[in-house]
Design a protein around this nucleic acid. Structure first.
Lengths: 335, 335
DNA sequence: GACGTCTCTGTTAGCGCTAACAAATATTGG
DNA sequence: CCAATATTTGTTAGCGCTAACAGAGACGTC
């Protein structure tokens, strides 16, 4: 094998056909005699030939690559999404190129998208949970297939999203059903759509039950901020139930409560969101809401592929319902 | 902008030069008059021209893409590594294409590498913490720049690795220094080099202190397996110090000990490995070992780029030392 | 048997770029 | 001021592939 490996003509020569016939075999074109097809395949195998994606991309104007733009792929949610996306894409013959950005302002996002475009990706998935991201997306070239995940529900861009409100409602109602008078909420950052949706669901559930929502405690997804909120919650004797916007916040809250001698779930019940793999091993095991990342990945890729193939998109909005996972961090309030 | 956007010739026409001059400007070739350079840049900006990576890759035989092969990018370690790799690569003008694999057997790895090769990536980083991966890598075409992360320390492939043994030794010695007679170890799966290195460091530290290593408790990185091991540890009154191969195992152990009423660190001290962001909010805050993922990413990319540029590699082995992070899960044994 | 109609295969052009060389222009030294 | 050299620009070819068309057989139909 030379430095650049065998090309299509080499395969053609060995199989005694033209390079175009090789191309037809590779692309599953119907009008090729079975015998020829086999000869070509044999030649491909013998030479260890690998089609050159760059050449194909050049002539077709599209590569078999999907670009993903995400912010913090270290967080459990984005990481899971990315992994699921990659698995799904691979099954469809697409590679995934990551362009993570440090901040979700629109300069960063635009830059990441630009990078993808210059590689002529077939389509782009933007995990854009933040308001400022939307603006960047609106001014993009319209001919690029694009799907947003957890983006602006009211924006004009095709969107797949976890039903945050439904998840939050389920969590809140679960606590209410256990007999709690009200439910406190430790939220994520207010510029994340995820946070807003969860706050919304929590508030609606309380209102529907005829209770006035207590003040919101804003966090930033981190266990550290959960801990800070927990230190306040622990000092308020009336607090008996807390819903946190993710599991890491819950971990921080749990620790603060523990430090103050407030027992979970005996004194205070806690529900999280995300179902990180460790949630079952928190002290106590955490009742939480599990978003189906695989489903989100499948839906967004589906949507993207439809756009890629047909030029214009099918469903422009899709919502995935999360499920409540009941463990041991919830109990009825003591009287 | 047409469907495929402006090409180099369009820029050339607008700037009144040949397309080759445009190419020279783009590639920073020295022999271009300043005035011409400016005219070209202006034309590029005006048209919103974006170079076509596919065409460039076709003619140069190399794209500005680095392929990463990893297994479970949902785990904290791999996810952090991937993110760091992406950041570093972006700074050097490279995109990162992920090829995650479900299993680390050599068929899967080979397939992922093949996919990358067919996209003509400039180089490949394999996060291959498992023995079977090594075999797959040895039979690769030799002309592809390749770096392994956390791979086989005795293999022939260029390698960047966290000094697992040093980290484990630091953890073990920290417990010994606190006055514990011996230290138990909950390990990762035995086919991971990371596990083997950590087991090795733990054992050596004990031996150096003149104590006979207690039986090894094998886990699988998950909190679930940590919990199972913890249930056994809790029942053995003589156990006063445990070093777990990662923080999630530690979480499981912590929970099991808590259930059995064994207090940490009063009754039993625990040290983890990884320093996940939540470790500071475990109950109690976890003393652990922090590998520097950024440094690993930088080192591996550095190594890869050297290979890409010079044809053959520089340093073939590089080791990054981890740091002990002291929190509250360690105390002297009670007498 | 001549003709259209399939099915299969080959030929040609060109995607957008860089490398290699050729040509034109500027700069220098004698 | 002219040859010799350095600098800047243009011209050509071709990377490996697919699309579009053209040609060659095989087959049935009148």
């Amino acid at each position: 094998m030379a430095v650049h490996g065998p090309a299509m003509t080499d395969v053609a020569r060995l199989a005694g056909v033209s390079h175009q016939t090789v191309s037809r075999v590779l692309n599953g074109h119907p009008n090729v005699r079975e015998q020829t097809r086999l000869r070509v395949r044999a030649a491909i195998a013998e030479l260890g030939y690998r089609p050159n994606g760059a050449a194909r991309a050049l002539v077709t104007g599209r590569s078999q690559v999907i670009g993903v733009v995400a912010q913090n792929t270290t967080l459990y949610g984005p990481a899971s999404l990315l992994a699921a996306l990659e698995q799904t894409a691979a099954a469809e013959g697409f590679a995934v190129s990551v362009g993570s950005v440090r901040d979700l302002d629109h300069r960063s996002i635009s830059a990441a998208v630009e990078r993808h475009l210059s590689h002529r990706v077939a389509g782009i998935v933007v995990i854009a949970p933040v308001e400022s991201a939307g603006e960047a997306l609106e001014r993009l070239p319209k001919d690029v297939p694009l799907v947003t995940v957890d983006g602006d529900p009211s924006g004009p861009v095709p969107l797949v999203t976890v039903d945050q409100a439904a998840g939050a409602r389920a969590a809140t109602e679960h606590l209410l059903d256990a007999g709690h008078r009200t439910v406190w909420h430790v939220s994520g950052p207010s510029d994340w759509f995820d946070s807003v949706g969860r706050i919304d669901g929590w508030r609606k559930a309380l209102l529907a039950a005829g209770v006035d929502p207590p003040p919101l405690m804003p966090g930033d997804w981190s266990a550290a901020s959960g801990y800070r909120c927990g230190q306040m919650l622990a000092r308020m004797p009336e607090v008996t139930a807390v819903f946190t916007a993710n599991d890491h916040l819950a971990l921080g809250v749990l620790r603060a409560l523990h430090e103050f001698g407030r027992r979970v779930p005996d004194d205070i019940s806690v529900v999280g969101f995300d179902d990180v793999p460790e949630a079952a091993y928190f002290i106590p095991p955490l009742t939480t809401v599990r978003p189906d990342f695989d489903a989100v990945a499948r839906a967004s890729l589906q949507m993207l592929l439809t756009q890629i193939e047909s030029g214009a998109g099918g469903a422009l909005r899709q919502t995935i319902a999360p499920a409540l996972v009941v463990r041991e961090s919830v109990a009825p309030p003591r009287r």
